[in-house]
Design a protein around this nucleic acid. Sequence first.
DNA 1: TGGAAATAGTTTCAAATGTAACTATTTTTA
DNA 2: TAAAAATAGTTACATTTGAAACTATTTCCA
Lengths: 169, 169
Amino acid sequence: MNLDFTYFENGIGSISGQLPGMPQDRVVLNRLFFYVFKELDDVYNQHLSEFGLNSSSFLALAMILSSEDNRLNPSHLSAALIASRTNVTRLADDLVGSGWVSRKPCTQDRRRVELSLTPSGRKLILAVLPVIWQRIEQQWSDFSPAEITEFDRLLRKMLEGLRHFRMAS
Amino acid sequence: MNLDFTYFENGIGSISGQLPGMPQDRVVLNRLFFYVFKELDDVYNQHLSEFGLNSSSFLALAMILSSEDNRLNPSHLSAALIASRTNVTRLADDLVGSGWVSRKPCTQDRRRVELSLTPSGRKLILAVLPVIWQRIEQQWSDFSPAEITEFDRLLRKMLEGLRHFRMAS
DNA sequence: TGGAAATAGTTTCAAATGTAACTATTTTTA
DNA sequence: TAAAAATAGTTACATTTGAAACTATTTCCA
C-alpha cells in the first residue's frame, strides 16, 4: 500500500488556495495522524503474524498475563482492547481454539466468565513479549527521552481535546 | 465504547514488574496512539454522518475538489485515502449512486476512469468543508502554535522510523 | 516491433468488526 | 422484598475492508 502523504498535502494546498479559512496546519495534523496509525498498525501486525498472532490476540494474551491471578473477564478485555464485546467473544473463541486460553464460569458471579492462560499460552506470550519490546526499542531508537516525554504529553492532550469536543457536540 | 486508557497502563505496569526489559514509556506511547486514533476516527465519523458522509467519502470529495480540472483517477484516490483499489471502486459506486460524482472513461488512457464532482457534489463539499474546519479549530484550540509545529515534527519522525523499520525487517 | 511486464479497474471471496436482540444473572430501588 | 434496571455474555445479522484473480490496455525492452 502506497503511503505517500504528499498526495494529501498537495490536495490540501490546492483547496486552501480555492477556499479561505482552512486551518491548514491542524488539518494536516489530523490527516497525518491517520497515516502514522495505518503504518503502525501494519508494521506490528506484520511482526505478530510470525507468531500466529495479530494486534488483538497479542494484546489479549498480554492483558491476561498482566491480570491478577491470571484471570480476566471478557468485558474487561473489551475495554482494554477498545473492541466490542461481540468481538471479544469471538477472539476468546479463537484463543481457546488455539489452546492458549481456557474459559471457565465464574463462581462469584454466574453471569461472568473467566479467561486464563493455559501453560502453552503463557509460554507463547512470554516468548513473544521480549521480541516485540526489542522491535519497539528499534522503532523509537531515533527519539530522545525528552522527545518521548513530549510526544506522550501531546498525545494525552490531544485525547483530552477530542473527549471534551465529543461531549460538547 | 469505554476508552479508559488506565486499563492498559495498569496492565503494562504489572507486566513490567513480572518480566524485565520492557521499554515501558515507548510501549505506552504505541498503545496510546491507538487510543487517540480510535477517538479521532469516531469523532469525525460522527460529525460527518450529519451530512450523510463518512471519513472516506468526505475525503474523496475533497480530493476531487482539490484536483486539477476537477478530475481524479480511482488509483490516485486509493493512494490519498490509504484504501485498497477494491474499496475505492465501491466508494466511487456509492458516490455516483448518491449523485455527487460522475464516472467517465479517460480518452487518453483507456484503462483509466475519471471521477468528477457533479454540481450537487460540489455544492455539498463546499458546504461541509467550512463546518469541519471550524470543528478542527475547536478540537485543537488548546494547542499553541509551537505545540502544533512540534506535534507535526514528531509525527513525521515517527512515520520515518516506522518506514525505515519496516524496510529493515 | 512483438512479446513480456506493468498498470487500471472490477469482481469474487474471505476476514474483521460492530449493532441490536436475546438469555441469564445480579443489583438497585420504591 | 418484589419489580425494574443494569450487567455479562452470546448469537444473528449487517457493514467495512482487503487479497487474489481476472480483463483490458499501455509501456517496456530485447
